[in-house]
Structure formats: structure tokens, C-alpha cells
């Protein structure tokens, strides 16, 4: 259990520094930024998470002789990678090498490691490497009689669906109306998870007479 604004000492002070956590309580994190409360159920998995598409950006430095590009790209396809884009910088030759930016998707950390091994053997110089898990965004706006504890339950409900990368709920602390609006932003690690979030929220909205406004999706 973690405190919600209703359980915090009143009045809530505004933070002077935008985006800086006023109260950081581990997981989920609670931020109060001006009059907006942000609850973040975040899990950041590194690129070691298996079973999820990973998008990799690599800056390669290749010898400026024919056949080098093929040598650099072959290991990607050979390891079930999917090349998304290649940018060749012919004009910038330093120490006899040219820079090539490659973006590709791989299905596991293992595949990425194989590719890196083969580059090493093939004398492909990796200047920079960054990777990102592919995630699927969802967003909703809820309108109706929503108490902080309702929102907590909703956040926990989404969290329990599985395949969640992160979810954030934002709502205003203005005490004026019973009718509240809350934004939910989230990321799923699998596309199929989006349908489950949708089902959960629809069910929840119907049960408690909340208006559910969903994003347009892709």
C-alpha cells in the first residue's frame, strides 16, 4: 500500500522544479507537479528482456573498400534480424573508415550478441550501440466519479494484466468537482496486451458508470 493524495497531508504543495519528484515512493512512483498528480507504475527492463522485439541502432565504422557494407549487414540477416534502415556517410572518411548507421530489429539479446561477435571477427568497428525494446502504446481518458482509490485500483488492475512495460495515471487535484478526469498512458510489451487492457477498462467503466475515451491507437 502506498499513499494517495487524499491520504497525504493537505494542502499539497506545488513543486518548484518541474518534473522533479516531490514524493518518490519507489514503485509505483507518485509525483505531484503543479495541480496534477502523476502515478507511475514503471518497470524498466534492460535489453536483456527476452521474447520481445528489440530495436537496435548501431554506428559502424567500415573500411572504405568494396564489399564492406555487405560484410556488415550479413550477420544481421543471418541472425534473423530485420534491417529497418541504413545511412551511409561516404563524405566523412576518418582514418580510412566511413561511418554507417544501421537500424535493425532482433528478437532476442542472444541474436544481438551473435551479431556483435560476427562484427568483431569481420573487423567491423562498432562506434556506438543503443537498443530499445519495442513497445505498444495505449492511452485513455476517464471521466466520471473517480476517487483516488478508484484510480489506484485501476492502475493495479492494469498492472496485473501482464506484459506491461509501464503505466502512468494523471489527474488533477482540484477539489471542485465530483466528476474527475484522469489520463492513463501506458506501454505494453506485446501487442496482444492492448486488447486485454481495453477489455479491463471497458468492463471497469461499465461497472462504475465512467466514460471511457480511448486513443485512436495506431
Amino acid at each position: 500500500m502506498w499513499p494517495f493524495p487524499s491520504e497525504l497531508p493537505q494542502p499539497i504543495q506545488e513543486t518548484a522544479t518541474a518534473g522533479l519528484p516531490l514524493i518518490a515512493l519507489g514503485r509505483p512512483e507518485l509525483y505531484i507537479h503543479a495541480h496534477i498528480v502523476i502515478i507511475r507504475f514503471a518497470r524498466s527492463f534492460g535489453p536483456h528482456y527476452e521474447g520481445n522485439e528489440m530495436r537496435v541502432h548501431a554506428d559502424l565504422r567500415l573500411k572504405d573498400v568494396p564489399g564492406q557494407l555487405v560484410r556488415a549487414l550479413e550477420p544481421i540477416s543471418a541472425n534473423d534480424g530485420n534491417i529497418v534502415g541504413v545511412v551511409h556517410h561516404h563524405e566523412a572518411v576518418t582514418a580510412g573508415r566511413i561511418t554507417v548507421n544501421v537500424t535493425f530489429e532482433v528478437s532476442s539479446q542472444k541474436s544481438l550478441e551473435h551479431i556483435l561477435d560476427e562484427w568483431k571477427k569481420g573487423e567491423v568497428d562498432v562506434a556506438r550501440l543503443s537498443s530499445m525494446l519495442e513497445t505498444f502504446d495505449f492511452e485513455y481518458l476517464l471521466v466520471g466519479e473517480l476517487s483516488p482509490s478508484d484510480l489506484r485500483e485501476i492502475g493495479e488492475g492494469i498492472e496485473s494484466i501482464g506484459d506491461l512495460d509501464s503505466v502512468e495515471i494523471r489527474y488533477s487535484v482540484s477539489p471542485s468537482a465530483d466528476e474527475k478526469a484522469a489520463m492513463i498512458f501506458g506501454k505494453m510489451k506485446q501487442k496482444s496486451g492492448l486488447g486485454r487492457v481495453d477489455d479491463f477498462l471497458r468492463h471497469r467503466a461499465m461497472q462504475s458508470g465512467i466514460i471511457l475515451i480511448s486513443g485512436l491507437g495506431e
Binding site: V143, S172, K180, A181, A182, I213, G215
Partner: peptide
């Protein structure tokens, strides 16, 4: 039942309803 608060919350995210 869509409230002004909902509309302004959407607007903060550069969205309309």
C-alpha cells in the same frame, strides 16, 4: 457527461475529443 476538465486535460496532451 464529457466535462470541461476532460477536454482541458486532453488539450494539455495536444488532443481533442
Amino acid at each position: 457527461g464529457i466535462t470541461l476538465e476532460a477536454i482541458s486535460m486532453a488539450a494539455e496532451e495536444k488532443k481533442v475529443i
